[in-house]
């Protein structure tokens, strides 16, 4: 496979894996947890690296994901107490954890994969050089990991579809009839955490949020039917990733930034022409354009 094709596949896998989970995070109103997870995960990666001194173990992946999950759970716990309000907790604790990670990174780590640059933008263009052979097939490691994660996420959504929808829509009722919203939530967070860790080498620790939130948000502007939402999220995520990457390729700019901007443009367009967006009505509506209700016409002689 050519270099560019491999890049494209990797970025598409990354985009779809993240945005699929993002659909549910956005629907639950909890999408910024991906921000918090990404920050905490960097800490996990750096800490694990300092202990293990190499970035290539799967244990690192799991450990970092768990660190992210643990920190997020702790924050959820603390924020339900009276001393700190939820959004403030989100902002500060993750930022502090992230800051510690950056300090450790700049002071003790001398690995290009953990440079400031890598953290902010990821290193998509280097990913095809780190390869992994499984069952005789030689592919970039990121492709294996993200492919596997995509498979996991699709499996999760398919198997737990009704549990996801139920616990997201009406967690109270879910508990009453014997389901566990906490379990579903935990699973969702765990998978998100894993996916963000897996995406780190591709898009870094900050802009991954763009992949998780923007394509689903865009899809929500286009339709209110869940099947269409899921389908269009996948399409938007893919097309956005591909065009962003190609744009970056030809303009020689950061691919992650470019993709984030393309996603944003897509969102803006959907905001303007999407059927679920009221923008046009708000700007252009005048009285003439609103048809009178049927009973008005009857009362006033069909005028």
């Amino acid at each position: 496979m050519s270099f560019l094709v491999e890049l494209l596949i990797i970025i598409i896998l990354c985009a779809v894996a993240n945005s699929l989970l993002g659909i549910f995070l956005v629907l639950r109103g909890n999408s910024l947890i991906s921000f918090g997870l990404a920050h905490s995960i960097l800490f996990g990666i750096v800490a694990a690296y300092l202990v293990v001194s190499q970035l290539n173990s799967f244990l690192l992946l799991i450990g970092a994901a768990m660190t992210g999950l643990v920190i997020v759970s702790l924050v959820e716990l603390i924020s339900s107490s009276r001393y700190i309000r939820y959004d403030a907790a989100l902002g500060l604790i993750y930022l502090t954890v992230f800051a510690v990670a950056i300090i450790l990174l700049t002071k003790y780590v001398d690995n290009a994969a953990l440079s400031l640059n890598a953290v902010v933008t990821g290193q998509l263009v280097y990913t095809p050089f780190i390869r992994l052979t499984i069952l005789g097939i030689d592919l970039p490691r990121a492709m294996w990991i993200l492919g596997f994660l995509l498979f996991l996420n699709i499996g999760f959504i398919t198997l737990f579809y009704k549990e996801l929808m139920l616990t997201s829509f009406d967690p109270t009722y879910a508990k009453i009839i014997g389901y566990s919203p906490q379990a579903v939530s935990l699973l969702l967070m765990a998978l998100t955490s894993l996916t963000i860790v897996g995406s780190y080498s591709v898009v870094g620790a900050i802009l991954v949020v763009a992949f998780v939130i923007t394509p689903p948000a865009t899809a929500l502007l286009l339709s209110q039917q869940i099947r269409v939402i899921i389908g269009s999220t996948i399409v938007i995520a893919t097309i956005g990733a591909v065009s962003g990457l190609l744009l970056a390729w030809f303009l020689d700019i950061s691919p992650t930034g470019s993709i984030a901007v393309v996603y944003g443009m897509g969102f803006l367009i959907a905001l303007m022409i999407g059927s679920e967006s009221q923008l046009r009505q708000q700007i252009f509506s005048t009285e003439d354009k609103i048809p009178p209700p049927p009973n008005y016409l009857i009362e006033h002689g069909g005028n």
């Binding site: 629907l27 109103g29 009704k162 929808m165 139920l166 997201s168 829509f169 009406d170 109270t172 009722y173 879910a174 009453i176 009839i177 014997g178 389901y179 929500l220 339709s223 209110q224 039917q225 869940i226 939402i229």
Partner: peptide
């Protein structure tokens, strides 16, 4: 069985009427 007050649920969720009623069978 428990039917909450109308306001306690996210009505912007992408579900059809049938989807919601079907939840009565989920248990």
């Amino acid at each position: 069985s428990y039917m909450p007050q109308r306001g306690s649920v996210d009505w912007s969720f992408p579900l059809t009427c049938l989807d919601v009623v079907l939840m009565g069978r989920y248990g």
